[in-house]
Design a protein around this nucleic acid. Sequence first.
DNA 1: TATGAATGAGTGTTCATTCAT
DNA 2: AATGAATGAACACTCATTCAT
Lengths: 197, 197, 197, 197
Amino acid sequence: MPMDSSTTAGAADRGAANARTRILDAAEALFADRGYEASSTARIAGRAQVPKGLVFHYFPQKIDVLVTLVDERTFVEELREQPVEAVPGDPAGTLSRLARRLPLHASPAMRRILFREADTHRSVRERLGRLNGEVFLRARRALELALPGARGDQARLEVAAATFTAVLIYQENLSSLTGQHVDPDAVADLIARALGA
Amino acid sequence: MPMDSSTTAGAADRGAANARTRILDAAEALFADRGYEASSTARIAGRAQVPKGLVFHYFPQKIDVLVTLVDERTFVEELREQPVEAVPGDPAGTLSRLARRLPLHASPAMRRILFREADTHRSVRERLGRLNGEVFLRARRALELALPGARGDQARLEVAAATFTAVLIYQENLSSLTGQHVDPDAVADLIARALGA
Amino acid sequence: MPMDSSTTAGAADRGAANARTRILDAAEALFADRGYEASSTARIAGRAQVPKGLVFHYFPQKIDVLVTLVDERTFVEELREQPVEAVPGDPAGTLSRLARRLPLHASPAMRRILFREADTHRSVRERLGRLNGEVFLRARRALELALPGARGDQARLEVAAATFTAVLIYQENLSSLTGQHVDPDAVADLIARALGA
Amino acid sequence: MPMDSSTTAGAADRGAANARTRILDAAEALFADRGYEASSTARIAGRAQVPKGLVFHYFPQKIDVLVTLVDERTFVEELREQPVEAVPGDPAGTLSRLARRLPLHASPAMRRILFREADTHRSVRERLGRLNGEVFLRARRALELALPGARGDQARLEVAAATFTAVLIYQENLSSLTGQHVDPDAVADLIARALGA
DNA sequence: TATGAATGAGTGTTCATTCAT
DNA sequence: AATGAATGAACACTCATTCAT
């Protein structure tokens, strides 16, 4: 944060982060707050404290800002690289741990953007689908490892994984949109009971 | 005031419907398809086959179209009046029946609108909250009636009801946004197992 | 004010004055307050508590409302019929009396309208011109009668009359627009001194 | 920032002026001619030969065009800096000279705008008030200097200054609105007589 | 006489985008 | 890389006016 010395020193270096980052930061905040359509490029530039024209220097079209945001600030790859940890015999604890490890937790703003814009932008929808799929696969794998005896058939396990995934991913949106709070740990416990002894 | 039944029934009825209804129909389709912000009043008028000015005759502001849609085409009241049916000893069947009876099923378009715009419009968010609350209350009551022995504590029952409500309401969005399909009947079964014998 | 019994009794008779009068009242208030251009016919109708269509029943075009207002509520004729009273030897008192007798005093709203719209509407300008001319003629005649000895030449007397007329007619506008208050009596005294011994 | 003197002087200069100036020129002409409300931004742009959008680049709101016009083209500051010249013993000549020196004379269009829009726009009204106040102060001071013997009391002197100010400022409006021409020199003479020997 | 739905041109304003510098 | 003037299509909304009833 103190002086980004990787760039050549110059008068234009005022402000903490470089222009491109500031633009993305501003866009992230605005898209989360009011939606993509309602956030003008001028406003993004204003909030980023860069001239209007510069936005188009880095991102030829407005939609590229959204696409870049989703590409660079949604950690699907990081998620995939993380090992699945499971405690055999404790499916509830295993799911809870999975929930807590999700890098998803990092940016509430990105999650709002992801859900809101998935509805109308294919590339965002694809990203959300991959994210969901990744979490689903890990939940299923975790449950398989936690229940070595393979109690309950495969179909039920999938339903359990899908339900947990939905609650996990939508969690925050759910509570901000409907006012209904759902505790992932409690759901993990519920699911464990359904699959358990 | 509405006297639409005086026209001959049939597909041709759509063109014969009065202007206000046609405007709402057009708006519903467009809002669901591309979102509120991206649907211009001119386009709504065009699709409804009415002059631009008439939209503002009925709805002084664009937002009033959305509010009216949510007010008139989201059956919260109808939902409340419906009795809760339960089969004692069969929580899974009880939840499944509840799901099938939901007037919510009527309009996928309205549900998309509800979720998308709740993010940015308070009045829509409130409506969605009420709808969610109503479904939650009915799910909990249904489970109470289906499990007369009060097996499992109250807290667990609430988590079960909340989880089922979330899956039920979000169901369609979930599958269109993430590609993940969740079958309410299977979730009902899962939850019944968690609470049941 | 209690029941305008000159019309045939009917259900539509609610409200004190008849519709046409209410429309003119509303227009007078609005035109004075925000100007002709900024007062929509819909707003006039709203304030008059009559349906929009009715305005056009009485006044085929919006401009007719203004023209009618100026025609019916600007008392040029009444002014002309009034005799010129003068006190020989007391020009100051004579002018002061003239000022006090002016029916002009009746409606500040109409005077605002007259000055504002004269700038852009010929018919209003003509009316204002006639009004000014009438006051000027009476001021000159009053001064002639008050100064029988014809002291001072005719040209000076005309300047005096014109100056007094300007102050008199513009008086209220002047003080509301510039914050400068000019007392007609003091000006009458000043002018008398200029013409007097 | 303004560098208009780099172009060749002459009538062709108007087309060469920068866009902002052309917009203000066009607005000044239109506002004076038909009033602020009746002059659309599209028309202003058309007359200035600039695209509609550019008007809003320089003036975010239409009202800003009016405010800027009043700010930049009404010489209150210039007026204040000018010394008050007086010829002791010749109040009539002193007032006449004051009238002739008024930079006010420069733009008849601005004066029409000032009076017309003061009625409905506070910022314009304030400007007109300041202008009137400035002229009044100068007229009073000029009379004090021209009449060193302090003939006539202070109150009379103020009435004289106010009357002359009104005639001077309103002069042109008066003649265009009412058809009545008032010659400032003649009024100066009248006032001098009222105060003088 | 009274009414409000209907109409479409026009209004102020926003916007993504381009481009010369 | 950086800048802000320039552009014109599109936007939400207003309006005087018409007209069938």
